[in-house]
Design a protein around this nucleic acid. Structure first.
Lengths: 202, 202
DNA sequence: AAATGGTTTAACCAAATGGTTAAAGTAGTT
DNA sequence: AACTACTTTAACCATTTGGTTAAACCATTT
């Protein structure tokens, strides 16, 4: 048991409830219960549901904005960079498997929310674009739109987790074990798949 | 204006509202308004919100369960099958871009819902597995777990749509046009990417 | 003309919900 | 001892929400 102050306890509880039920489905009482406090105190710290939600959402989003830029700087081989990124990103997802669905759901209900957040994080994808274009110029990889490549890499990481119920039940006939094995395999195989797709064979 | 009976009008209206707001966020009054009827009549046809939602969800899910089996039967070249599937599936998504997020969201909130549905649709993925394994045996494609390949193909189709707000705002800096161009490109490029990844070069 | 099934109106209800208020208690600080 | 910040209790409130009921209306069919 780690001692936590009330503010933190509330955030942790709110995260849990919001991620599980969404903004509309979550109840302030449930968040208070989960935090082991009462509703009055909850409102004492965070004036409204909307404000509390916004905090939680921002935290969740920050956790998941992949640090693409960081992964792609440095002198390492481009393919090694991809391998490292996929492994790192899938490891984060492993630890927080419900966050991607949460973000996608709430952004689906209210895409405007993102506009506020973008300001806080400075996400400049240009360096990654440049790195990809350089590899193309050097004929190390095939011609591809940089944005397409980025989207593909992230898709191969995120989709298996957001579609878990479907994949687990239809592809793996309900086996949690088979599903987990697939996710684990993917930490290496997703990068292999991508590299194999773009590597130049001239 | 096509004349519709009330039952249909309700389903159409319910689809719209549920997809937009989710189960918890949708209001029966709003559905009634959208259908141009009153709440009494709404309950006259569909006794409860939950029942109406279940109907809508099943319809949405059916629309989106990709007909993998159909796409992979026949004598055509395996790579042509992939190309055809990707094109067809992305075209369906084009026409109903909000359904994937809807399914993922609601399944995230209540994964049990899927178990009911699976009975209705007979989804046997075995033939697709077999087809993939045969290609591997014939050394036409590289070694890959069939389930991984299936997941990858669908990920490359679905993810760009479910993550639209993020992709549009971060990758394409808010440009709807650039985003749409990417989706269109993908109808051909996603298959190219996959084929390039798995084609054997021995 | 009577019966039928769909439709409207409008009032109604119980429960839930986000949020408030006020008064009292507690622990540490000055 | 007084002050401060945090915490609890518990009552309270306005609004919303899913759902019901009953009476009347209307068009078609019998």
């Amino acid at each position: 048991m780690v001692e936590k102050n009330t503010e933190e306890k509330i955030i942790v509880a709110a995260e849990k409830v919001f991620i599980e039920k969404g903004l509309a489905g979550a109840r302030m009482q449930e968040i208070a219960d989960e935090a082991g406090i009462n509703k009055s105190l909850l409102h004492y710290y965070y004036r409204s549901k909307e404000k509390l939600f916004t905090m939680v959402f921002k935290i969740a989003f920050k956790t998941f904005a992949p640090d693409l830029i960081k992964a792609f700087e440095g002198d390492d081989d481009f393919f090694v960079k991809i391998e490292r990124f996929v492994f790192a990103y899938l490891s984060i997802i492993d630890k927080n498997p419900h966050i991607p669905v949460f973000i996608i759901s709430e952004l689906g209900n209210n895409p405007k929310r993102l506009v506020d957040i973008i300001g806080y994080l400075d996400l400049n994808v240009q360096p990654v674009y440049d790195a990809i274009e350089e590899e193309i110029k050097k004929k190390m990889i095939k011609e591809i739109e940089p944005s397409d490549l980025i989207i593909n890499v992230i898709a191969l990481c995120v989709f298996p987790v957001v579609a878990k119920p479907i994949i687990k039940n239809i592809v793996f006939k309900g086996s949690e074990e088979e599903y987990k094995k697939m996710l684990d395999r993917r930490k290496v195989e997703a990068a292999r798949f991508v590299i194999s797709a773009i590597k130049n064979t001239d």
